[in-house]
Simulated assay, not measured.
Amino acid sequence: METTTAAPTITRCTSCGRTLRAAKSIAAGRGPRCQAKVRAAAKAAVVAEFKPATVAKALELIADNGIVPIRARRVIAFRVVSSDGANRYLTAPQACNCAAGLKAKHACYHRVAATILAAA
Score class of each variant (00 low, 15 high):
residue 19 T to E: 13
residue 114 A to V: 12
residue 11 T to R: 05
residue 3 T to S: 10
residue 88 R to F: 11
residue 41 A to I: 13
residue 100 A to I: 11
residue 19 T to Q: 14
residue 1 M to H: 14
residue 71 R to A: 15
residue 84 D to S: 14
residue 53 A to K: 13
residue 30 R to K: 06
residue 87 N to S: 13
residue 72 A to N: 07
residue 74 R to L: 14
residue 6 A to R: 09
residue 29 G to W: 02
residue 62 I to A: 01
residue 68 V to R: 07
residue 112 V to Q: 02
residue 120 A to P: 06
residue 19 T to N: 09
residue 102 L to W: 08
residue 112 V to M: 05
residue 49 E to R: 15
residue 76 I to E: 12
residue 46 V to G: 01
residue 120 A to H: 05
residue 16 C to N: 02
residue 111 R to K: 11
residue 25 S to Y: 00
residue 64 D to S: 14
residue 78 F to H: 03
residue 73 R to F: 15
residue 66 G to P: 01
residue 37 K to W: 08
residue 37 K to H: 12
residue 92 A to T: 15
residue 76 I to M: 10
residue 89 Y to E: 01
residue 87 N to Q: 14
residue 117 L to R: 01
residue 98 C to N: 07
residue 45 A to F: 10
residue 119 A to L: 06
residue 81 V to Y: 00
residue 98 C to I: 13
residue 86 A to H: 07
residue 4 T to A: 15
residue 98 C to Y: 07
residue 44 A to L: 11
residue 4 T to M: 11
residue 100 A to Y: 09
residue 95 A to C: 13
residue 48 A to K: 12
residue 58 A to K: 01
residue 92 A to Y: 00
residue 119 A to G: 03
residue 74 R to C: 05
residue 29 G to A: 02
residue 12 R to E: 05
residue 38 V to Q: 02
residue 68 V to A: 10
residue 71 R to W: 07
residue 54 T to F: 06
residue 91 T to I: 05
residue 11 T to V: 11
residue 78 F to T: 06
residue 42 A to V: 08
residue 89 Y to H: 11
residue 114 A to F: 03
residue 8 P to W: 04
residue 69 P to C: 09
residue 97 N to W: 04
residue 8 P to H: 06
residue 67 I to F: 00
residue 117 L to G: 01
residue 113 A to V: 11
residue 117 L to S: 02
residue 43 K to E: 15
residue 36 A to Q: 14
residue 34 C to A: 06
residue 59 L to S: 04
residue 47 V to E: 06
residue 64 D to W: 01
residue 4 T to E: 12
residue 39 R to Q: 10
residue 98 C to M: 12
residue 27 A to G: 07
